[in-house]
Amino acid sequence: MKKIVLFILLISSQILISSAQNSYEKGMSQALQLWGNTKPMEAIALFERIASNEKENWLPNYYIGLISATQVLSGREKEQASALLEQAQESLNKAKKQSSNNSELFCLQALINTAWVTLDQMNNGQKLSASIMKDYRTAIQLDTNNPRPLYLLAEYQINMAKLFGQDTKPFYEMIQSSLKKFDNFKAPSAFYPRWGRNRAEQLLIGKNAN
């Protein structure tokens, strides 16, 4: 009987652990799915709930910031743009406290600032351009295997070069090398950011189309 009790305790505690893990995994996959199904606000809400459980985990906050920033970058949110970007910055600041010197977080910082630039190109462009490029460079330095900052920096510089009528070739080379990094990229954990490959490929197609 003792053994049975012990056994039950063992199993149940294991189930509890795995169910806790499951609800994190379930929540994360569900949230990512919501985002994929163009329900970004619901996704943000779910990530917020996950963040309230995961005090040490930077990923939920990272995704709140990422979704908010991409909402503005895609031009889908005009009315709430400033509020969304402030929310993005707030979540990023929390994530930075949970994980320091994180290449992905520098990337996100640059994305948020790029979104500010799209809102007021003339004023914010001049103010934020230098720090956007610097954050991408820091992101590359922190993790040389991370393909995202490389292609994002290239994209930013391609837009600048196009505006100034300059050669864009070296930046497309950067995208090429980012694709190699995408091939070799191994996410260190589940739900670790993996996005970007499609966009990088599209940029290359766009180049050939021109």
Binding site: A45, E48, R49, S52
Partner: peptide
């Protein structure tokens, strides 16, 4: 609309 309602320290909630 779109407010996030949830039980703190759990995954239970809805918008």
């Amino acid at each position: 609309p779109g407010a996030n309602v949830y039980i703190d320290k759990s995954y239970d909630g809805a918008s």
